[in-house]
């Protein structure tokens, strides 16, 4: 049971270390460096207060800087070098990428994912949120639909093998085809559409997330606006699309972008379902293929992903700054 003990020790050391850092550094600041006594008491207090935020933020800034900011720069730099990392080749890796057929397929597929998955999840989530809003058992329904959120992508892939398997005695789809006398197919081998079968899995997972957030947003709409619309003679569809949806547009956009970002990180589903075969490769899984084999290409792919996300990132920052004002 060595790992358990090791784990426990780490938890204690790690957590204790964090607490200790914050407590002791704070104590040091107040009692030793700028003590709140003596003739400079008020100057010391003000100075301590100026330093304190940085003290509190240091570990977070350090972690963010090392693990996220540095890699963005580091990866870009690495992507300019060849496979072994010893020869500067400029944009050679990118050139190689964009001329490679596999990459083009992955890029195109990824665009499909980025368009379809957030749209479908958000739309389904919104519809379900609205439908369950007034149901007596709405919360149970929502819990059950939300449940896939808790399931790993690997687990989800396994679950969906019981739907997609090409054996009518295992896969549900083929069982249904069999029942109607249609031939057995392997959904993973159907060109082009196999991408969508894979997307269904992620949509299945993410709809619950969209639903929960949007459901809360719907609850936050002032009841009076809906009642006013009823008195104005709007039917339920008009109320939904013309009164409710515009009021929660902000939340819809947040959900949409959150799922978009997630889509660009998920490689597990493709990795476990098809391994990227049969033209189902997407950028993250494509990158994993090159990882450890050719870091130059792998980092170049990562940077392409980064550039695809860039508009979302800028939009997010603009939004956050507007909120601050």
């Amino acid at each position: 049971m060595n790992p358990i003990i090791a784990g426990l020790v780490t938890i204690v050391v790690g957590v204790g270390g964090c607490v200790g850092y914050f407590y002791l550094s704070n104590l040091l600041l107040d009692k030793v460096i700028f003590p709140a006594r003596g003739e400079n008491i008020s100057r010391n207090i003000n100075r301590a207060n100026a330093v304190r935020p940085w003290l509190f933020m240091f570990p977070a800034i350090f972690a963010l800087g090392l693990y996220l900011v540095y890699p963005v720069i580091g990866s870009f730099w690495r992507s300019l070098y060849n496979r072994a990392g010893n020869e500067f080749i400029g944009f050679g890796n990118y050139q190689a990428l964009f001329t490679s057929g596999d990459f083009q397929v992955a890029f195109f597929n990824n665009l499909l994912w980025v368009l379809v998955v957030p749209a479908a999840s958000t739309f389904l989530g919104l519809v379900i949120a609205q439908l369950t809003d007034r149901l007596s058992w709405g919360n149970i329904a929502k819990s059950l639909i939300f449940m896939p959120m808790a399931i790993s992508f690997v687990g989800a892939s396994l679950i969906w093998k019981f739907v997609y398997a090409n054996d009518p005695d295992i896969g549900l789809i083929n069982a249904i085809r069999d029942f109607f006398g249609l031939g057995v197919i392997d959904p993973m081998l159907v060109p082009f559409w196999n991408n969508f079968f894979l997307m269904v899995i992620l949509i299945w997972i993410q709809t619950g997330f969209a639903m929960v957030i949007l459901s809360a947003a719907l609850r936050g709409i002032p009841e009076e606006t809906v009642e006013a619309a009823i008195i104005d003679g709007a039917n339920p569809f008009q109320i939904f699309f013309r009164i409710k949806v515009p009021q929660i547009m902000g939340t819809i956009v947040v959900v949409w972008t959150t799922i978009t970002i997630l889509v660009l990180k998920v490689f597990d589903i493709v990795y476990t379902m098809t391994g990227g075969e049969f033209d189902t490769e997407i950028l993250p899984s494509f990158m994993m293929d090159y990882m450890f084999r050719d870091d130059g290409i792998a980092t170049a792919v990562a940077f392409v992903i980064m550039i695809v996300v860039l508009p979302v990132m800028i939009w997010n920052i603009v939004q956050a700054r507007r909120e601050l004002r």
Partner: peptide
């Protein structure tokens, strides 16, 4: 929104 993949190699 920085993709995780970016950080893996470095």
């Amino acid at each position: 929104v920085v993709p995780l993949q970016l950080a893996l190699v470095p």
